[in-house]
Design a protein around this nucleic acid. Structure first.
Lengths: 230, 230
DNA sequence: CCGGTAATGGTCGACGTGACCCGAAGGGGG
DNA sequence: CCCCCTTCGGGTCACGTCGACCATTACCGG
């Protein structure tokens, strides 16, 4: 079967989300890099690059992400593969898109070093190629997934209060959640376990700190990154 | 950006499911084609082929499916892209996998013409490349999806009884469902609409025939094929 | 005409979840 | 130093969903 040559270039791009302060609230942001060559010279695009000859797809996503932004995501999963023949005006490009999450400190560290702009997700428009469409799909999937999978913890540190976890969910979903009901749902799901420590220094009652529980039984052949271990 | 050459061949393969009679019950089957060249000469594999230079990914999936099996699926969606460097012993191959459903008459028609074997899904083992893994993932996704999306109707004809629809769900999930509860869930969901006709000729009370309701409002940027319209 | 079986309609209880209430705990302003 | 505001964290209540289960209807075949 090897031998049928294909006139397509194989690329990988990543939609990475993080939480940053914006207008007094935690809001979802993603990093954009400005292109310095044709096509779409000067336009912003998702970080990415070409897939190397001897690396896996996820490996390529991590490498290109590090090269273009310096980011090391805490969560990474394959999203979709785009391959319309007219995606790029200069030739056939098939792009495997990954979706990722990074913690805020990592995001802040990187913003100062690289040529990266963190844009609020609802202000992302006019990207190169079909990246507007890609971002919309990634956001839709993240919002759906936060309801049934424990992805939100990847935007927080080792331990966190349930109030912090609730703020993450609120930022992703874009609407307020009832604190008491949220607590009940999360604790009952077994996705977190309580520690003995409390978060001090706040203005009000010190909340207990929790830790994410690593899922044990596989949901399918794969699930850590929500896809096969290919 | 075009110019970064990639030493990978781009292929597309499809996991197609249909319902066939097996040991007195409707069971899920999928078509396998026997390879006639290296690598994995003589082994069975999923139908597929190379992606053409001027066609979309879904287009390529339909074309290769028709060429190797003659099948025209009633449902087709992108599943996952596999790209481990060592997937194929003869060179780097990245495969975009599609998942599909075909109606039984179409499947029966094709089996006589092409070199295709319909295998019960739980007896699929020893396929070429990493196709065992691919099939397991496709099956896991189908089972998850049948619970919240109206995919089962694509295995039936224009009209069908709720008993027939229930049999489809039972075959996919591999366990019996309560007829009364199934009826209540399906009718309440609005996924089907009743016709005035009844299915006659059966041994028992003639069931009313239903028709699938075409979903209107989009769930996200995409949904007909559960992915972007790329 | 009768027995068997599927189609169809209904009840009941367990459970998850949103709306809402209230005491507890801590810091800051008067 | 003592309220008061705010968040934490525990609870109640109503409601909708769903599985288990029962009853009736409508055919066919003997």
């Amino acid at each position: 079967m090897v031998g049928g040559a294909v006139a397509a270039s194989l690329a990988v791009s990543t939609v990475i989300f993080t939480l940053l302060e914006h207008e007094g609230a935690q809001r979802l942001h993603l990093p954009l890099v400005r292109r310095t060559r044709e096509p779409f010279d000067g336009a912003e695009a998702l970080p990415g690059g070409w897939i190397g000859g001897d690396e896996g797809l996820e490996e390529a996503a991590r490498r290109t992400l590090a090269e273009t932004t310096g980011l090391r995501p805490s969560y990474l999963e394959q999203l979709y593969t785009f391959g319309r023949p007219d995606r790029s005006p200069t030739g056939r490009v098939v792009s495997v898109i990954y979706s990722a999450l990074v913690r805020s400190p990592e995001a802040a560290r990187v913003a100062e070093v690289h040529n990266v702009r963190w844009a609020p997700v609802d202000e992302v428009r006019g990207l190169a190629f079909d990246h507007d469409e890609v971002v919309a799909y990634a956001l839709w999937r993240l919002r759906a997934k936060v309801g049934y999978a424990q992805v939100a913890v990847h935007l927080l540190g080792e331990t966190f209060s349930l109030g912090q976890l609730r703020e993450v969910h609120e930022a992703v979903l874009g609407r307020p959640l009832d604190p008491a009901n949220f607590r009940r749902r999360v604790t009952a799901s077994g996705a977190v376990e309580a520690t003995d420590e409390h978060l001090t220094g706040g203005r009000h009652r010190p909340p207990r700190l929790y830790r994410a529980v690593v899922p044990e039984g596989a949901t399918g052949p794969f699930q850590t990154t929500a896809g096969p271990a290919a």
